[in-house]
Nucleic acid binder design. Sequence first.
RNA 1: CGGGGUGUGGCUCAGCCCGGUUAGAGCGCUUGGUUCGGGACCAAGAGGCCGGAGGUUCGAAUCCUCUCACCCCGACCA
Length: 565
Amino acid sequence: MRLSKGFFPTVKEVPTDAVIPSHQLMIRAGLMRQLTAGVYSFLPLGYAVMKKVMQIIREEMDAIGGQEFHLPALNPIELWEETDRVKAFGDIMFHVKNRPMVLAPTHEEVITAIAKNHVKSYREMPQIWYQIQTKFRNEPRPKSGVLRGRQFTMKDSYSMDATREGLDRSYDLHAEAYKRIYTRCGLSFYIVGASSGAMGGSGSQEFMVESNAGEDNLAVCAESGYAANVEIATSLVPPAERFEANPAVEKVHTPGCRSIDEVAAFLKLPVARCAKSLVFMNGTAPVLVLMLGNDQLNEAKLQGVFGQDIRPAHPEELAQITGADAGSIGPVGLPATVTVVADRRLQNANGLVCGANVNDHHLVNVDLGRDAKVSAFHDLRSVEEGEMSPDGKGKLRIVKGIEVGHIFKLGTKYSSAMKANFLDEKGEEHPIIMGSYGIGVERIVACHIEQHHDEFGIRWQKGVAPYDVHLIMVNKNSEAVVAKSEELYAELTKQGLAVLFDDRSDVSPGFKFKDADLLGMPLQVIVGDKNLKNNEIELKERETGRRWNAGVASVVGDVVSYVRN
RNA sequence: CGGGGUGUGGCUCAGCCCGGUUAGAGCGCUUGGUUCGGGACCAAGAGGCCGGAGGUUCGAAUCCUCUCACCCCGACCA
């Protein structure tokens, strides 16, 4: 493609609305333009990258036996009522105003509807069905360019198996395919254990790219390779102590002490002797949660125990339930209607300080087994930077990450709800055992830029670069330069390379070099007067900035072998 | 949904507090000329009912009220 003919709207100035590098560069390099919040038009150069990424995905999905579908984005709302996900998605799902229809935010329902009608026997499985299509989600706050949009492209696939073992195989196939996809897309990534959230199901892993622009926090350990979303991450931390002496509970006056630090300082006890109480409402049922010291409660873990509907109690509710305000609440002497759960670190603990359920008073010498009715101990705390990895091999680091893929063992959640059943070899009917596997296509593009750019622009890696080489005709006034540039353009194209040819006659050489660095093709071929007089052509590697000259006679071969590696 | 910020030519912004001729700059664009290896120069041009509606005033980009859009932080996030 000739730059003089094509549509490549580059911009020198950083767009005001873009704050992260990938967003800025996607605008500046003319990959895309925003239409409205969370909705972007892909311009030819950006779409060329999208197509490259989608092709890689397609090849790897096909390689594990995937079959590509094209599914409707417009769905009857009844379909989503069958699985109760109209409610589950809530405001996230776009509803059509003049028909009882919705815009699909994902495709479990449509896939399951097809399977229900056509997959009737264990003999017909396993199946892997996928699509690469636009999804719609009414994100409350779109942000970071294409990283969180209201309309985006997603590859999602669904596996159907007759057995749990089959599901495990399908899941593993996807995990391996995903590793190949991200590697081919030039991303370095973590595979982390994740919470399956509202998708349901038994197991899930996320593929995460480390980035400051990320919205998820990960606990990673370089020594052991441990990596987990902090929503489920664990660490090796000692439990609270158990003391021999176990005196009776005593109520003490603790004026003005609201936080754990204040209470510990006032009583001259270590923070690790304190048990912090938090009150939640599980629907209408109050739940008191105990954490050791200043351990942070992990609400995702709490939701794992009680479900999605649990929420912090309001201040009025606190007083009503416990008789005290936050800071003086505790597990001793609560009404039987209050469920008490505690973090595992508190198991068997005694000698604790807790709120007395009377403002400005605390209890000391509390033995949770003796003095309170703790119904269960769970892992409820958030891990902290610097704690030991659960395998004990090294310290945890907390990093931010961008989710570029998520794989789930769904099980039978959707097949049961929609009665998508099959007959096994004994003639017994069972719901199909499903998996669901997603990849955000735009996120791969944005993450690629996040990981491969510098102050001058993008540095595409070979696998996803929209063009293989950027051919620069430096000086249009030199007939020799023009002729050689045209010749190279024709010849390289003939060799099967995708060539972006800066043949513009109305911009200065400097302008062309800046544009080439901004657009970021892996190799620049620079045809200029001075080198040409010596029968040489300059080559520049964008990644490293390395430059070298090739002889006129060998340059085509050199470029071709560089591109093909 | 809470908190903060911004809307002025295609882009980046000034002007607004303290109302007062024809609303500015740089970049980009058009025309002509010069230039040609790291975002060139000269000259002449085109382009804006200052996000929208209402109000105050002799007079509003500027003050007041409402509203819309976008961005950021938080909440939320299969």
